[in-house]
Design a protein around this nucleic acid. Sequence first.
DNA 1: ACCTGAACACCGTTCAAGT
DNA 2: ACCTGAACACCGTTCAAGT
Lengths: 259, 259
Amino acid sequence: MDERCSTHEHRSCQLGWAAMSMGKVDRVRAKAAKRARRRPLSKQAMVDVALRIVDTEGTEAVSMRRVAAEFDTGPASLYAHVRDKDELLRLVLDRVIDEMEVPTADAWQDVVRGFAHNVRSAYQRHADVARLSFAHIPTGEKVLAGSERLLRAMIEAGVPDRVAAWALDILSLYVGADAFEGWIMQQRFSHDARGRPVAEVDADFVASVQHDMGAMPADRYPYLARALPVMTSGTSDERFSFGVDMLIAGFAAQIPEQP
Amino acid sequence: MDERCSTHEHRSCQLGWAAMSMGKVDRVRAKAAKRARRRPLSKQAMVDVALRIVDTEGTEAVSMRRVAAEFDTGPASLYAHVRDKDELLRLVLDRVIDEMEVPTADAWQDVVRGFAHNVRSAYQRHADVARLSFAHIPTGEKVLAGSERLLRAMIEAGVPDRVAAWALDILSLYVGADAFEGWIMQQRFSHDARGRPVAEVDADFVASVQHDMGAMPADRYPYLARALPVMTSGTSDERFSFGVDMLIAGFAAQIPEQP
DNA sequence: ACCTGAACACCGTTCAAGT
DNA sequence: ACCTGAACACCGTTCAAGT
């Protein structure tokens, strides 16, 4: 009551008589004015706010209270639009998934490879949103159309139905895991220098791992010592591309010989 | 103070005179007795408790307050042994990683395949502990020895150093992601029936996905419609094995031709 | 060095009550 | 149907104070 009187909307606070009833009327008016001024609550608007928080601070920074605060209301108000926090975060993920494109290419390998890179890029544009991708089966119209194109590219090239179907699952899992892991790494090595180029972060990581394993007895672990320099070589992009290529090679090996 | 008087250890509560000083002495004695009775705090003991919570309720159920409560103390006491909750959970993961064995086999493919399955089994024995595996680089003695054996098996078979080194990374990422996803799925489909066989849970999942995608227009998405029955076929174990085999095939294709 | 109580600044969700 | 204030039952971490 007291702090409300500090706002200029409560003229009744200056009046001595009939303060009770006038206060009530004014409070109602102020409430209505406030409600009119602010953005109305809706799934769409809530996802907008949540995604902005994800982009700047990561998925763990999203809280019902914080999202609600951006609408000048309490957390309870959100529950008229989503069942719980999990549903809100799933909607955020679906929004990001809508950014992913299946490229057009002649060779099925290029379609699959391009898709994998586009998925990773979309995740990378939105912090650790890939964390939400595990066990999430998107069913949007765009996802169906994209899956259709991917399956067609593979099946027409002779990839068995079962291999093509499972390939999508495995690729999605791998890309999501890579993007999530990449974000954690990025966070870990940006404790002091923010916004540095990825190559530099990679270099720091290399140095740190080599330090951790440097005390390793080379005579007891000859192969590990031999693999160490190459283990920490290459950027995260190169390692990701390599992983995708390994999977594609595996799928390709499942194409039966032409008679 | 009042509720302390309800315990039989505080005889001074019945005494009128010198209650202050006697109460103090008794309180000290009770405290010492309590401390002697309960398990002493230590990293080891804390990991024991945390791992038991993980096993029964999952990693999200672990809280500093709950772990502390098992030692009859407050959460602040834990911070003398670990930097933060993250370190405690990393120690839990390291404990689980110590359960993983690298099998002995002649063919490098069998060593790698067996390793992948052992890693998954260890994760599966401990709820969603695989969630903690992302961006975690274990450096224990046993991990080094295991990595040595894996690298030797691959490199001696002609797998290039770089491929062998990256293969470990990619496999670990894939297995961790699969185990984590598998746990979420399991949770999702055990809302009413707990402890059911995995095959049954898989069957439920199949039915649900087929329902979700059932309304899909078959004429607009012919390849999707064609792949649908096979997409939801097979158990999660079969799909995992398939993914591992795809990677192994990819690595194998990197072995240069013998001259 | 190890431990503690109390406090700080948060959480997700529910529920009766309002419009 | 949508919204709200207040409450419930929690969080991780810090800090001065104790031993």
